[in-house]
Design a binder for these strands. Structure first.
Lengths: 226, 226
DNA sequence: GATGATTTGTACGTATGTATA
DNA sequence: ATATACATACGTACAAATCAT
């Protein structure tokens, strides 16, 4: 799941997990599709054992659903489900930023501001991937600013699962510019130490991202040539 | 973990997972302790295969830590870590109740009120286990009241992991009475549809639970004869 | 630093439970 | 409704990596 693309994990089960996770979030594997252990094993030149472990991990991330003795299927990403996931992400992000606004140290605050400044060039170049990476750094800095490592871990895991959706969302024309503008509002509230206002801005930011994804995928559906 | 004690799960891996989860949250298995697959298998009369699956599940719930090719150890529950977990739980619960206060249907609201009324008898009888069960129902009704099934699932999973800590917390003398009083404040705010106030009450409720656990375990440490 | 012991990671075989004809 | 086919759940075996000496 790309928490570290530069890590060619030597464990077969992990490689399979990552590959399947990518295919599921990318939509190559459709919701409801059966995931036959033998079949997947053949595809990766592996036995069923590491496949099983990969499927269990994916079930824990609710990317697949396992019915005991009845096999695994790709979890259902209905439009409604994705909206729900975005709402939860939005609320978690809001929670984090509220706490961070109260607890971040001056050094942490200045680092956050610097990250935001750096992102300007990427928006101007329309370099989606670079902006997405800095976006990640920005949000991660907020998680750490909560000074609650358990919360930070959970937030990172959730964001990881949504990775594919977030990237897609940024492809809507003009979205990166607006995204950065929303970040600026969040940043200002953090700098003032106004946690509640920061939370409101963050919710709005995530809501806009969700809406952008919705519009983008709707357009894509009607004109399926990528 | 006891999400359903009345469910003698036929899957060996699940039974092992539940047993280990209980021992970890109960403190029988100490943080940092190595979890040898063979050894655990022997204890449960099982082979390493279901043990491995159980350990993976527990890692996903961050109850154990798996280092590739170096085995699994019990995750570290320092006092600080537990406080962090309670804070996250509190914020998640607050998030849920805020949404629920705005979205619950009249039928859902009346069911919630009924659950609260039923709990009175159990507090008077000082029946901790029965109160804990109804407590669970109360919070679960709130999760479902968010009308966001993804959020509800995550909240349930988190609460499940904290199960042992919550039960322990209720054993402090007088705690059930106060706990129920706090529920009442939450309920009133929900009934008024005041999400923000409900969230504040819920945070306070969870903070008090955390503090009660803290006092209870501190006392227990100094007088270890249970 | 090298060697042996232990433990994990993976392959494969078998039986039980589920779905289908 | 019964039987057949098939996938999963678990057990066993071996190779590779880690650790202990």
């Amino acid at each position: 799941m790309s928490s570290d693309d530069a890590n060619p994990n030597p464990l077969l089960s992990e490689r399979i997990r990552i590959a399947l996770a990518d295919e599921i979030t990318a939509g190559t594997l459709r919701p409801g599709q059966a995931l036959d252990e033998q079949q997947i094993g053949d595809r990766f030149g592996a036995s069923r054992t590491p496949v099983r472990e990969a499927l269990r991990q994916l079930a824990a991330a609710s990317l697949v659903e396992i019915r005991p003795r009845r096999g695994a299927i790709v979890a259902g990403f209905t439009a409604e489900r994705i909206v729900e996931m975005f709402e939860m992400t939005a609320e978690i992000e809001a929670m984090c930023v509220r706490l961070a606004a109260w607890r971040m140290t001056p050094i942490e605050r200045s680092r956050l501001a610097r990250l935001h400044e750096e992102s300007e060039a990427m928006v101007l170049d329309n370099d989606i991937d670079a902006y997405d990476r800095l976006n990640w750094e920005f949000h991660r800095a907020i998680y750490e600013g909560t000074h609650n490592s358990f919360l930070a871990e959970q937030a990172i895991a959730l964001r990881d699962r949504m990775a594919a959706f977030r990237r897609t969302q940024l492809r809507e024309s003009g979205r990166p510019v607006r995204s950065r503008g929303e970040h600026e509002k969040v940043l200002e509230a953090i700098m003032r130490g106004d946690g509640e206002e920061a939370a409101r801005c963050m919710r709005a930011h995530m809501f806009n991202a969700s809406a952008a994804l919705d519009r983008f995928t709707a357009k894509r559906e009607s004109a399926p040539n990528n």
